[in-house]
């Protein structure tokens, strides 16, 4: 049954196609243009009126835009008026396209590019012989080819080399940071930071005294925890006087500022205190030397050993590692 239906369907399709071909040809003969299968030049008077009205409204909206610009400069009204003018023009164009101008359908033959039976066409063969013909009668082809190649490569390299003047080469500039033993921690305004301002569970941002605050390797985050909770590596046991710790504030993953401090609300159930980067949520364990406990960062935040000098926070040494994002050749920890 379905086979019969399929056959009927196929026949019907061929019938339609045949009718279309015949019909198309005949119409083509009638009109002056090749491939034209349908041409309906009856414009609807109502559509013409509608287009005129839309164009008029568009003009009004455009004038309104100018008036708003002169009178109030309100962003909403400006956008509304100008957008409306364009949309009304668009509507006019579409109505005109569908109901005013002549309606046509056309069949166009495509240019045939390839040889229908596969293989290279005559044009390709001729093109090849035209290009290759330039070398007719040359005896030292390989020598000339090699010499041209050498000149081209050398000149290309010479052209690329000035790109190096774009920036300084990587010397120790990526490794340089302003921290070292005796450097005082200061706030954004350059004032020293007394240890007493930090309560347990609080955190703040500090900079190396005298160094530009915008330098990526400068900022450290200072947090205070209960000293009895600390589980720092043995060689860092005296780096956190009164439970005050300092870590580089720049995420070792992608250089965002580690701006979030997760403080446990109810320590028995919550995860421990951690510094979190808001870009990709790398999470660093404050109690264990900023070890990565979640997120993509591959290295811990470098720690800054602290001491308290006449009440103020001072670096007791350099950062434990390279601050900021990593590159090939930087130390992991």
């Amino acid at each position: 049954m379905s086979a019969v239906k399929a056959l009927a369907r196929g026949l019907w399709r061929y019938l339609v196609a045949a009718i279309l071909v015949v019909f198309g040809r005949r119409r083509t003969d009638e009109s002056s243009e090749e491939g034209l299968v349908e041409r309906d030049a009856r414009s609807s008077p109502r559509a013409e009126l509608a287009v005129a009205a839309l164009l008029g409204l568009a003009a009004i909206a455009a004038v309104a835009f100018v008036l708003v610009y002169v009178a109030s400069l309100d962003t909403q009204l400006l956008g509304l008026a100008f957008g409306l003018a364009l949309l009304l023009l668009a509507a006019a164009a579409v109505v005109a396209a569908k109901a005013v101008v002549v309606q046509e359908e056309r069949i166009e033959e495509r240019p045939g590019f390839s040889h229908p039976d596969g293989g290279d066409s005559e044009a390709v063969t001729e093109l090849e012989s035209t290009i290759a013909g330039a070398a007719d009668g040359i005896s030292r082809r390989r020598l000339l080819g090699a010499a041209t190649g050498a000149a081209g490569v050398a000149l290309g390299a010479a052209v690329v080399v000035p790109l190096a003047s774009l920036g300084p080469s990587v010397d120790d500039r990526l490794r340089a940071n302003p921290w070292g033993a005796g450097v005082r921690l200061v706030d954004e305004k350059g004032r020293p930071i007394p240890a007493s301002v930090l309560e347990t569970g609080s955190f703040l941002t500090a900079f190396a005294e005298g160094a530009p605050t915008e330098e990526l390797t400068n900022a450290v985050v200072v947090v205070r925890v209960d000293p009895s909770d600390l589980e720092l590596p043995p060689d860092r046991s005296d780096w956190a006087p009164r439970g005050i710790l300092a870590y580089s504030k720049v995420c070792t993953h992608a250089a965002c500022s580690v701006n979030l401090f997760r403080k446990p609300l109810y320590p028995p159930q919550s995860p421990g205190p951690a510094l979190v980067c808001p870009c990709h949520y790398s999470t660093f364990d404050v109690l264990r030397g900023a070890k990565v406990v979640f997120g993509p960062a591959g290295r811990p935040l470098p720690q800054l050993p602290l001491r308290i000098d006449r009440g103020d926070l001072v670096a007791a040494g350099g950062l434990s590692g390279n601050p900021g994002p990593a590159w090939s050749g930087v130390r992991e920890s």
């Binding site: 909403q76 100008f82 949309l87 668009a90 509507a91």
Partner: peptide, 17 residues
């Protein structure tokens, strides 16, 4: 052309509103 104007019109309306 209608589409060009419509795209521009919608974008300016979004930009304003």
């Amino acid at each position: 052309v209608g589409l060009l104007l419509a795209v521009a019109g919608v974008l300016f309306m979004m930009g304003g509103l």
